[in-house]
Structure formats: structure tokens, C-alpha cells
Amino acid sequence: MSSKNNGSSLAYRIISLVILVVLAFLFLFPLYWIVTGSLKTPQAINSASPDWWPKEFTLRNYETLFSKRTAPLFQIGSLTGPVIPGAIRWLINTVFMAVMAMLLTCLTAALAGYSLAKKRFTGRFLIFSLIVAAMALPKQVILIPLIREMSALGMYDNIWAVILPTVGWPFGVFLMKQFAEGIPGEMLEAARIDGASELKTFTTVVYPMIKPGVGALAIFTFINSWNDYFLQLIMLTSSTKLTISLGIATMQAENSTDYGLIMAGAALAAVPIIIVFLLFQKYFTKGITMGAVKG
């Protein structure tokens, strides 16, 4: 760990590198096992000595996954779309949910974060304290009341019942406030002197400054919403309204021994979100570090 390359620290470095590589393999293994498992034959799956690499590749598990359930592509009133595999419908639901949660969160949090960082209004401290306190509480505690609330609003078993609470979660506001703190006051002052309206100031001065933060929040919200299994589980019940995680969970409850089929489902749920993560991981890292509440 020292910059001096004496004997013991070199040995330490080599040993720790070896351990790191082994750990990396172990952490990658479940994902590898999902993808290869989804391409294995039932014989290979239900064998006491597993194949490390599939001896025979098959797409059978995916065929079963796509033919097992069907659903209309969309349903607006009495208008129903063409019939598609249920798993694809779940994927569409999930993308819709994650995109909506992402857009609404970014929009509301960017405005609110700027306000909390730069506006000097009465009650600012109280609201900010409330936000920090709420972040420290486990989200799941409020889920039972949320069911009641959503039923009262007529939104139970509707994808919006999953989207709206995600938008309400105050982490985004906190993150955006962290980024907005960095905007120099003189720039805002200059815009004001130029006679720019509040909204104009936001779009031309504030937004360009906090753009990296918005990127971080977008990717963060997208991934978290995609994977928020508990919220999806308690809010959605009809089989055409499920998300992909929920659909796979339902399938595994029904055919818990058909691991090939379940792995195909798991791959369908995990691979798209992993690709999104890999594409945007730079923003993601930034979001995690900026969102940390430092004592």
C-alpha cells in the first residue's frame, strides 16, 4: 500500500491482487450461471454433476418462457393490441415504469434541489431536515399505508402505484441539492440583473451546471426502480400488469424445479439492466459518492 516498493509491500500487493481476482470470479459466477443455465438442456440442469460450460446449447428455455403466457401488447379501454408473449409484456411494463420514474424524479428533484441549495425562503431548514430524516428510515415501513392510500386513490394494481412513491422518495432531492450547492451565487445574481425570469435562470444558468448530477440521478433512479421488487410485489397483482422481476418470481413459485426456464427469465430481467448500468457507470459512481450524507 506504500509508494515505496520494498520487498514486503510488493509481496503484499501480489497476494492481494490474487485474492482480488479470485473474488472477482466468485462475484461474477452467479451471473455466469444464470446466462449459461438458461441455455442448458433439462438433462444438464437436473444433473448431480453440473456442466461448467453447456455441452449442448438450446433455446428451449426461452421458447417455453415466451410461449407459456400471452398478453395483449396494450389495452386502452376496449381497444386491445395484438397478442404477444407475456414475458415481453412484463418487460415493456418494466421499461415504462423505470422511464417514467426516472423522468419525473429528475424533473422534480432538479427543481427542488436548486431551490433548497440556492433560495433563502422561510421553512427551508425544516423541509431539508424532514428530507434527511425520511432518507434514514427504511422505505418498507411505509408500504402498508401506501397500499391503503393507493386503494383509496383507485390506483391499486396499476403501474402508477409503483411509479409515484418512487418519485416521492427524497434521495433525489438530496443528491440534486449537493450538486446545486456548487453553482456560484454571482452567476445567479448576474442573470437576475440581466432581468432573466426565474424559469429562464433555471434553464440557462442552473441546468447546465447540474447536468452531470441529473445524469447520475437518472441512471440511479432507473436501476433502483427496475429492481424495486418489494414495492412491485405489494402493488401489482394482475398477470398482464406485472414487471419482469415480479413475473419471474411468480413463475418460480409455480414451477420451482424448472431451473432452465427460471434462468431464462432471470437473464431476461438482469441482462438489459446490466447493459444500461455498464453504459452509464461513470455517472453512477458519481451519484453514489455525491449522495453520501457525510457526518
Partner: peptide, 19 residues
């Protein structure tokens, strides 16, 4: 690599461990 299990999602991770 160490972040991947989080991104993979709790359901996908859980079903593969179950196997």
C-alpha cells in the same frame, strides 16, 4: 464487478442462488 450483484436485481440473484 463488486457492484454487479446489486444491479442484477434481487429476484434474478435470488433464483440463481436457490439453484
Amino acid at each position: 464487478v463488486f457492484y454487479l450483484p446489486v444491479v442484477t436485481g434481487s429476484v434474478a440473484v435470488t433464483v440463481v442462488w436457490k439453484w
